[in-house]
Design a protein around this nucleic acid. Structure first.
Lengths: 234, 234
DNA sequence: CGGTTTTTTCACTGCTTTTTCACCGCGCCC
DNA sequence: GGGCGCGGTGAAAAAGCAGTGAAAAAACCG
């Protein structure tokens, strides 16, 4: 699935300059030109990353930052002409992940996007959980050492759950990430896939241990045991 | 728990300049002066973050970066005099999380450290109050460590109360925020939800400690203890 | 092209939540 | 003391949601 980037900038020139470069890298790009439409677009598109200008009509970049952070951990890179120490510190302390001063070098922006996305999607190569092993690099799932055959959609949904393991993911989020933003309310799809996943992965599909339903909120991948591979910060 | 930072730089001046500032922020600081000792120190200290210079004897910064990445996901901020596009892109693509060109502003470095640590350590703004813990990002409420299941409306009302904790919120305000402006005088809804919240959250629902009624005004969420959240502002 | 797997659609069921409504108790002011 | 506003209580009706099964449609593969 293509990664989606939302550009928020009131200067159409900037948007026009960046967009094709991002598309060339294989990202899907959408844009908003003021703070309020940015938040609406954010909810609708469910992007994997936000490129955010600071100076904007309606609602400033800092405000957008805070609003997004209240509802999501989606990475944000602020791109602004304001290069003062105070601006940078304020943005970073209000939830931005990186800060780039205009004018910037395109390849640097791309590299910073890669770095931020790499960390946020943190595909820990191996996730082990009782009798399940999920190898995200090979797209393989083992259950009690036996490989489980998953269809592409099943795997994509599982990956989405595992990416936020121990956290709740709404059906809406899953549909947006796996099928695309335009399917946002086709949450029926998820029901079916979740069921098939449970049949294939759960010891007792009727009483799930891994794929837990958080009533009226969404689903949660329950990883009781700590992840064993690739030790992160000790 | 104090967070540990490993500084890797062959210039003792830099180390001497940064170290006290980091200590003042409450970090534990250790240092290494070349690539090889850096890796040894990394394994020994197990830092939460690495500040890495590029030009060094024995093993360059890029090499250190790769080696660290092979064994850990510990965040790395590269700090270097080299400001060329190619250097930045190379560092970021080899596992660095951020890149700061010397000379840098100290407060910017500190802000970038906070930003990177925040993301790597899932910072959850928690509201703690006696035996209640409210995790606003994950939509989870714990009572004496046990998760409490709240319905969407219950959670929304609680969030509204908590947002103005220790201040009074009128029933009218709650209805407007949770149900929408057109429901402004359906204050009956609130009664029911408040009751259910008390049953679920209060030790003695008949004599509320948290969700207090302010007669003829509204409700107030009583947060005796201070809020505990992640260290974001210095 | 035919057969198989996968995805989509839909109707149904049991359960939880939300809404609605009637009533109770308390304090207050006239 | 009786009416009145306000907040708490309880229960039943209505609505919404998740799980299930099964069949149609689409994609895949030889």
């Amino acid at each position: 699935m293509k990664q989606r980037i939302l550009i928020v900038d009131d200067d159409p020139g900037i948007v026009a300059a960046i967009t094709p470069a991002l598309r060339a890298q294989g990202y899907e790009v959408s844009a908003a030109h003021d703070g309020e439409t940015a938040l609406a677009a954010f909810r609708q598109v469910g992007p994997h990353l936000v490129l955010l200008d600071l100076v904007m009509p309606k609602l400033g970049g800092i405000g957008v930052c805070q609003q997004i952070r209240q509802q999501s951990a989606t990475p944000i890179i602020v791109v602004s002409v304001k290069g003062a120490e105070a601006d940078i510190v304020t943005a970073l302390d209000n939830g931005a992940d990186d800060y780039l001063v205009k004018p910037f070098r395109l390849s640097e922006l791309l590299a910073r996007i890669r770095a931020v996305l790499r960390r946020s999607r943190a595909p820990q190569p191996l996730i082990q959980c009782a009798d399940l092993v999920i190898d995200t690099t090979r797209r393989i799932v083992l259950r009690q050492g036996q490989p489980v055959s998953l269809t592409p959609i099943e795997y994509a949904v599982l990956a989405e759950l595992v990416a936020h393991r121990n956290g709740v993911v709404t059906a809406r989020q899953i549909v947006q990430r796996v099928w695309g933003p335009q399917y946002a309310d086709a949450t029926d799809y998820v029901k079916g896939v979740i069921r098939r996943l449970r049949v294939k992965l759960e010891p007792d599909p009727a009483h799930p241990r891994y794929i837990i339903t958080e009533p009226h909120v969404g689903y949660r991948f329950n990883d009781a045991s700590g992840t064993v591979s690739s030790p992160s910060s000790p």
